[in-house]
Computed example of a mutant assay.
Amino acid sequence: MAEIIGVIEQLWRYPVKSTGGERLDSVEVDERGLAGDRLYAVRDSAGKLGSGKNTRRFRRMDGLLRLSSRLGHRLDGPELFDPLGRPVADPTAFLRAYLQRPDVALAREDAVSHFDQLPVSVLTTATLDWVCGAAPAAVVDVRRFRPNILLRTPPGTPPFVEDGWFGREGSGGGTRLAFVRASERCAMTTIAQPGLPHAPEILKAITQAHGGRLDALAEVVTPGRLSVGDELSLG
């Protein structure tokens, strides 16, 4: 028998990787993930993608998290907004001036995935509430952890309940997800963004208590549509 693990409280999509995202009431989910999620990124002349860290695929570009992006109902290109929330007429020209990098451009995903790890991130309110208690001096907000789904869990649900989902499948709104593992958190959780000051104590608390891991990452098994208010159950 299916076990209801929570109700979708928030849905988030991040049209341009490493920028602030858009909160949705409902969204189509395809094999790649939430439609349009991380579909675009800031790419430099070496082919590396703008991020909060340096890796083989990513290049640290400070300031991206102060921007935001939105697709709305169109998937032909994102709207980009400056740190004051004003729309940008020419995203590539703005990014070159803002980042002081003449070699960057706003680019659509091609052969190189824009995802850090897996395409869908689910975070519970039980775990988010734990972060609030573990870092009481910090301004804790779901935006720091950039999930696609914030799941409202029943009272009494323990933090890190997501760990028990790995190797199982969850379904809601006709969509089926296969839970694989947790995200390995980095300094992105601590970086200042509009309305949220720098908060290094958040990553310190997660690292000490849970090895720096937070949420449940999933692959899409069956595409469908997710909406706020949908129940999510484990099969």
Score class of each variant (00 low, 15 high):
Thr127Val: 13
Lys53Tyr: 05
Leu34Gly: 03
Glu109Gly: 03
Val139Pro: 05
Ala97Val: 11
Leu118Glu: 14
Ala2Pro: 15
Thr207Gly: 10
Trp130Asp: 00
Pro147Arg: 03
Leu118Asp: 14
Ser121Phe: 11
Val221Pro: 01
Glu201Gln: 03
Ile4Lys: 07
Gly77Thr: 13
Leu99Ala: 12
Asp44Asn: 08
Val112Phe: 06
Asp110Gly: 08
Leu151Trp: 06
Thr19Gly: 03
Ala135Thr: 11
Leu151Pro: 02
Phe179Val: 13
Lys17Met: 08
Pro91Cys: 03
Asp110Ala: 15
Pro200Glu: 15
Arg225Ala: 09
Ala134Asn: 00
Arg146Tyr: 04
Ala178Glu: 15
Phe58Met: 01
Leu234Gln: 00
Glu201Met: 07
His210Val: 02
Leu64Asp: 01
Val29Glu: 12
Gly47Lys: 13
Gly20Thr: 07
Tyr98Gly: 00
Glu28Leu: 07
Pro194His: 03
Met188Trp: 12
Arg59Cys: 11
His198Phe: 06
Ala205Pro: 02
Ile5Val: 05
Gly85Ala: 07
Arg86Thr: 07
Glu219Leu: 01
Met61Asp: 01
Ser183Pro: 14
Gly229Arg: 14
Ile4Trp: 02
Val16Cys: 00
Arg38Phe: 07
Gly173Phe: 11
Asp103Thr: 08
Pro158Asp: 12
Ala209Asp: 03
His114Thr: 09
His198Thr: 07
Glu219Val: 08
Gly174Arg: 02
Val42Gly: 01
Val16Asn: 00
Pro87Arg: 12
Val139Ile: 15
Ile8Trp: 09
Pro119Cys: 09
Ser113Phe: 08
Pro155Asp: 14
Ala187Thr: 04
Asn54Tyr: 14
Gln193Met: 15
